[in-house]
Design a protein around this nucleic acid. Structure first.
Length: 307
DNA sequence: AAGGAGGACGTCC
DNA sequence: GGACGTCCTCCTT
């Protein structure tokens, strides 16, 4: 897979590209933040927001030194008219743009399910903000800065400038601000898209599933559901937990501490650890939800009824 | 040492 | 009462 980068500056209020902080889709990993201003390597794409009817623009940057890392369709070798060439390029850019936006929205959807928060930061209470900050720390491996954002509601942090984020956290403020910007933009997009508007692949489905999902409507999530959610997003959580045999429902916890920490964030239990989480998993043995596989291995479990 | 099994009890809904 | 969360002992890898 190539490297995709989508700008955090998706919000209509930020059309300036001067201080772009980028989210970079790593191979098999989560969206990683990279600073375009200091980036030595040229980026492949920046997804930026524009006020035109299509909403999203994809800004193609100079080609990478390693062509296979950048999914730009090279039409230089074809004998096409400049107009047709341009049309093809536009269509391929639209496809990539659609994919990137879809991926970002899916990531937000998953985070909402796992954290039990709404997609729109403006609706968050201080507890939701804390969860989101902890989650962002996990995603981007930031130092712990939650205490600097205590007692702030979603409206509060949405009103804060990038400098105000930096004042609260010199090291992570810009990353948190950029990440929040993506969430704000996604919420803005959701509000903006009406039945008559142009849709991008998966956006409607993503939002529909977010709204229909019981875990987003205040229902408590079960541990086994939480584990399945993590397993469904290998590009984000594959470093923590992954399928060994999806058909048989066999999975392995690769990073027990991290999975426990994520579960602790979800349940507002800062003292959660793998010892306690595994005790809860073992309670599932009697209930016939999870068991140890026939050949028992450390940190490997099996869903009794894989779907 | 880390993980696994399971008892006992507390908390929260 | 269900679903954990916490703490514990003992066993296995």
């Amino acid at each position: 897979m190539g490297t995709l980068e989508s700008s955090s500056a998706l919000h209509p209020s930020r059309n300036s590209l001067s201080s772009l902080t980028l989210l970079e889709k790593q191979d098999g990993g989560a969206w990683e933040l990279a600073d375009s201003s200091g980036a030595a390597e040229p980026s492949c794409y920046d997804v930026v927001y524009s006020e035109d009817p299509h909403g999203w623009l994809l800004r193609a940057a100079p080609p990478s030194k390693e062509p296979d890392q950048c999914p730009v369709i090279d039409s230089q070798g074809l004998c096409l008219s400049p107009e047709l060439d341009c049309q093809i390029e536009e269509r391929s850019l639209e496809q990539v743009q659609s994919l990137v936006v879809g991926e970002v929205l899916k990531d937000i959807e998953t985070a909402c399910k796992l954290l039990n928060i709404t997609p729109d930061p403006m609706d968050w209470n201080p507890g939701n903000v804390q969860k989101w900050v902890l989650w962002t720390e996990h995603l981007y491996r930031l130092p712990q800065v939650g205490k600097f954002f205590q007692d702030l509601s979603g409206k509060d942090i949405c009103a804060m400038t990038e400098d105000e984020f930096r004042q609260r956290s010199l090291l992570s403020g810009d990353v948190l601000y950029a990440h929040l910007d993506i969430w704000k933009s996604a919420a803005w997009m959701k509000e903006r898209t009406s039945p008559g508007d142009i849709k991008y692949n998966g956006i409607d489905e993503v939002w529909a599933s977010t709204e229909a999902d019981s875990s987003c409507s205040g229902q408590p999530i079960h541990l086994w559901q939480f584990l399945k959610e993590l397993l469904l997003k290998p590009h984000s959580y594959g470093r923590c937990i992954r399928w060994l045999n999806k058909e048989k429902g066999i999975f392995k916890i690769e990073d027990s501490a991290q999975v426990a920490r994520l579960w602790g964030i979800r349940k507002n239990r800062p003292a959660m650890n793998y010892d306690k989480l595994s005790r809860s998993i073992r309670q599932y043995y009697k209930k016939g939800i999870i068991r140890k596989p026939d050949v028992s291995q450390r940190l490997v479990y099996q869903f009794v009824h894989p779907v």
